[in-house]
Design a protein around this nucleic acid. Structure first.
Lengths: 219, 219
DNA sequence: GGCTCGTACGTACACCGTACGTATGTGACC
DNA sequence: GGTCACATACGTACGGTGTACGTACGAGCC
């Protein structure tokens, strides 16, 4: 064998394969062929396919790059964290659903959680409030990524954009959809993402704290 | 055949099967066996398995029950709408990911969009702003549902709760995770959901309008 | 009767995950 | 050097998958 077939190599190749041909194209045989080996050789490094996908999810999660400055304003930290999630999701667009659809069992996968909690505490939230704040932001970001992923995958499989017929909408009584169809059609995921994020940040800003010791809290 | 095997019956049975044994347990053979027929008979009513899953998604989407009072405060309408999403997700917990992971191609699937847009307009947002507001809330709700679904599925497959070792967290430098472990452990999905929802509503409330004609807008 | 047509059944194929048996190379100890 | 144990790779095989295709049967119509 040219390369000695390690767990890491297998996982990286799996990610490549997912990004190239989609999740459904990943099979042990196909992946092994990609690596120039037999399907069963993979099982020396991974117990089963589920473990492979778990490993893919972990690999991607670990690939997150946080540029958060701990000294910075917590609002900026929230933005930075949320964008880091989104950035990695854009780096591996077709693997997003793999990550999302399996809960992180590994300790290493908790690093984002750690940073998010640290930020929530920096914002002045303690205990259960910190957890709730984190979950609110994370759930929002998660929703955005799933939404974007769904669109991306659609574009990949897109024979044509269906783009419903206005007359049909009228008939179905969907007047608001029809009226706002141009606004619905132009998808600026970036702007949408930032809009909701700022919404949440401003709401958090206005929230009362148990202790007014939020870093950068000025009024 | 006892029952004449219609598309609707097939789809309903598929939903039952997903809820009972999970998405992975759904195969054309298994589903056909459930219906007391052969696998290939299903193809008289559905072109392929993807279409079946699309139909399942649509079936569930259509099953949403909106109790929104158009005359009510728009904030209450947002709550009602968001809860309707969550309620249907709880009614079909194991089918959530099926719905989420395929974009709605059908006109009928746009009914929630229609109501959400109507609510956004009732809140005083027009045009692109209305769409962005809707997307922000929808994405948040979506994230919550995916999160909850992930946990639900985990509980189904749960041999044991892994529940990481505090010492291990310490070693990995995840001090915040360790400190907030009790708060992280007690999952009150309901409370978390409502918390984030109120966060968004309050932020929307504080947002400037292009026209101050929001229904129930008093401040 | 015969014709068409929609529905159901059965077989067949290529592919899937993976259990299991086997080969091959490598380092440890005598 | 001999001969172990062991890790890694390969091959075969089994049961299951989606579905293409051929066949059969019944209802409606001439």
């Amino acid at each position: 064998m040219a390369s000695p077939l390690s767990r890491d190599l297998i996982v990286r190749t799996a990610v490549e394969l997912i990004e190239r041909d989609g999740v459904n194209a990943v099979s042990m045989r196909r992946l092994a062929a990609e690596l120039g080996t037999g399907a069963m050789s993979l099982y020396n490094h991974l117990p089963n396919k589920a473990a492979l996908l778990d490993a893919v999810a972990e690999y991607i999660l670990v690939g997150m790059e946080f540029a958060a400055d701990p000294a910075a304003d917590w609002r900026e930290a929230v933005r930075s964290l949320a964008r880091a999630f989104r950035e990695v999701a854009h780096r591996y667009p077709r693997s997003v659903m793999v990550v999302v659809s399996r809960q992180p069992n590994s300790t290493i996968g908790m690093r984002p959680v750690e940073l998010a909690l640290a930020t929530a505490q920096a914002a002045g939230f303690r205990g259960k409030a910190a957890v709730q704040v984190m979950r609110a932001v994370v759930n929002y970001v998660l929703g955005c990524l799933v939404h974007e992923s769904s669109q991306t995958e659609a574009r990949w499989a897109a024979d044509t954009r269906p783009l419903v017929d206005p007359a049909e909408l009228e008939a179905a009584g969907l007047v608001n959809v029809r009226e706002l169809l141009p606004a619905l059609a132009e998808h600026d995921s970036e702007a949408d993402f930032e809009f909701g994020l700022e919404l949440l940040i401003s709401a958090l800003d206005a929230l009362p704290r148990t202790a007014a010791d939020a870093a950068g809290f000025t009024g």
